[in-house]
Amino acid sequence: MTWETLPVTPDRFDDFADVVNPNRRATHCWCLSHRLRGKDIEELGGGDREQAMRRLCEREHPPGVVTYHDGVPVGWCNIGPRTEIPRLAASRLIRPVDDVPVWSIVCVVVRSGHRRTGVTAHLLEGAVQYAASHGAPAVEAYPVDPEGRMDTTMAFVGTRSMFERAGFETVGTTEAVASGMPRIIMRRSITETAPGRSHLLQQQ
């Protein structure tokens, strides 16, 4: 069995879509709500959300990574420099804790039929590697810390325990909530050695 995590460049757009929007529905999620404002979607895609996402994939920093298991796209992580995520950069609810130019994870999705198979661990590690390859000093995420079993709606923001297993530590709180639960700020330094670090990152 092989795992691989790659940036969502234009030639991999359909792989990304297979994870988040397999039926290609215009009104379904294209993973833009946490990243772009309405005016940004209008400017990039003429109001068409799919086209706006395609345009983002053409940029120097594509908007995330896709994880493959034996060649099959099974996971998606929306990640990029915080400064390139307009809604996050302007947020009054999730404020920076310092002046470190972090990269931010704003969404995590595991493809239906592939959950509980270890996808998330490979996906988050691949996302950190992607950020590291572009010189990011640290990666942040903004999960919740629910009591008991995680509600399925939390899959998009993640939980504290999910990120702790990937080497992230809690560094702050926010005024934002998800499904009624407060979101926290977790960070993983790129320079730290964390369990599960793959050969790709070690060789950089």
Rank of each mutant, 00 (worst) to 15 (best):
D48G: 00
I184S: 00
D18F: 09
V171G: 01
A26Y: 06
V108I: 09
V72P: 04
E84Q: 07
T159A: 07
R54E: 06
G80L: 00
W3A: 14
V144G: 00
A141E: 11
R37T: 05
V8A: 10
T152I: 12
G126F: 11
R188P: 07
V177T: 14
G118R: 15
R49K: 14
H69S: 12
L88V: 03
P7Y: 09
A166C: 10
E147F: 01
V110E: 13
E50V: 07
G118K: 15
D48W: 03
R116Y: 11
T120A: 12
L123C: 11
R149F: 10
Y68Q: 11
S161P: 00
T27I: 12
V157G: 08
A89Y: 08
S179H: 14
G172P: 10
A90Q: 06
V102I: 12
T117Y: 04
D14T: 11
S133W: 01
D40A: 02
N78C: 10
T153V: 14
N21H: 06
T170E: 15
G167M: 04
A166I: 02
I79L: 14
R115H: 08
G45H: 10
D151T: 04
D11T: 00
E43R: 13
S104T: 03
D40V: 02
W103S: 04
R54L: 03
R197T: 15
F163Q: 01
K39P: 00
E84Y: 07
R197L: 12
V177E: 14
P101F: 01
T83Q: 12
R116Q: 15
W76E: 11
A121G: 12
G148I: 04
A89D: 08
R49I: 04
V177R: 15
C57A: 12
V128A: 07
R188N: 07
E84H: 09
M53Q: 09
G148D: 05
E169C: 06
M154F: 15
E164P: 00
A178I: 09
V65R: 01
M1A: 14
K39V: 05
H122L: 07
S104P: 00
P195M: 10
P137A: 01
A194P: 05
T117N: 10
I190F: 01
A194C: 03
G38W: 01
G75V: 15
V8P: 02
R24G: 11
V19S: 04
V72G: 04
D151V: 10
L93M: 05
S91D: 09
G148F: 08
D14A: 10
W76P: 13
A155Q: 13
P101D: 07
T170Y: 01
V19D: 02
T153H: 11
T191A: 13
E192T: 13
G38P: 03
P182T: 02
A176K: 13
E42P: 04
A127E: 09
F163I: 00
G148C: 05
R55I: 03
